[in-house]
């Protein structure tokens, strides 16, 4: 497939190597703005085609090749440019448009502009810190890109939360497992979950939000 990666920095590096891994016989085109980086890109990615374009000519390139481009990843070092190219690509009906964020605080702006596939490389910092320190009520381990769901960790701090989580599992029957305080993995049975465990559950985000609401509300 024909993939276009805009940008020649470290974000683009990971995008290009992943695309190569996905489709080793596919065509990868990297669009970069500076001649120095173009030379470096040609050496780093001999299998890819590196094209130098001025910032304002990228849109023209997308329009010219819109019937051939399968995937476009906007991964420059500027969120303003990433948003601009991603929006332009969506308007030109490129089937898969992915934007990579430089500043996680810009995520809502991209969401508002209807950019469906957005990669926030910093998102793992929050979940990793929570996981390592092991202090949280709920921790988003992974969010799926194609559906509104993910893998979530829930800390069973007391009997009330245990009851709520057990009920949730029995009602929704999601795939899950739990780990004990000493990091042993327990069998996947709601009855085996104990206070102090961390339960890892894969489900829709609306379901986990409902569960957290119920936990916050208190009561039985």
């Amino acid at each position: 497939m024909r993939s276009i990666v805009i940008g020649g920095g470290h974000l683009a590096y990971f995008a290009v190597t992943t695309l190569r891994e996905i489709d080793s016989k596919g065509r990868i085109v990297i669009i970069e703005f500076t001649s120095e980086k173009i030379e470096m890109l040609k050496k780093t990615f001999p299998y890819a085609e590196a094209i130098q374009q001025s910032v304002d000519k990228v849109e023209e390139y997308i329009v010219k090749n819109r019937s051939l481009i399968d995937i476009l990843i906007s991964a420059t070092d500027s969120d303003a440019l990433n948003l601009r190219y991603a929006k332009h690509s969506v308007r030109n009906e490129i089937p898969i448009v992915i934007a990579v964020l430089n500043n996680p605080l810009n995520e809502p702006i991209f969401r508002r502009e209807n950019i469906k596939y957005l990669i926030n490389p910093y998102k793992t910092i929050t979940s990793k810190v929570k996981e390592i320190v092991n202090k949280f009520l709920a921790n988003t381990i992974y969010e799926f890109s194609r559906i509104n769901g993910g893998i979530y960790a829930l800390k069973i701090e007391d009997a009330r939360i245990l009851r709520k989580v057990r009920n949730f599992i029995l009602k929704n029957d999601p795939p899950f497992f739990s780990t004990s305080v000493d990091s042993r993995v327990r069998t996947s049975s709601a009855e085996n979950i104990e206070v102090g465990d961390v339960v890892y559950v894969a489900c829709l985000d609306k379901d986990i939000k409902d569960l957290l609401e119920k936990i916050k509300e208190g009561g039985k």
Binding site: M1, R2, L68, D70
Partner: peptide, 10 residues
């Protein structure tokens, strides 16, 4: 197998 269906003509 193609991702961009407009590519078919090409």
């Amino acid at each position: 197998h193609i991702v961009n269906q407009r590519k078919m003509k090409w």
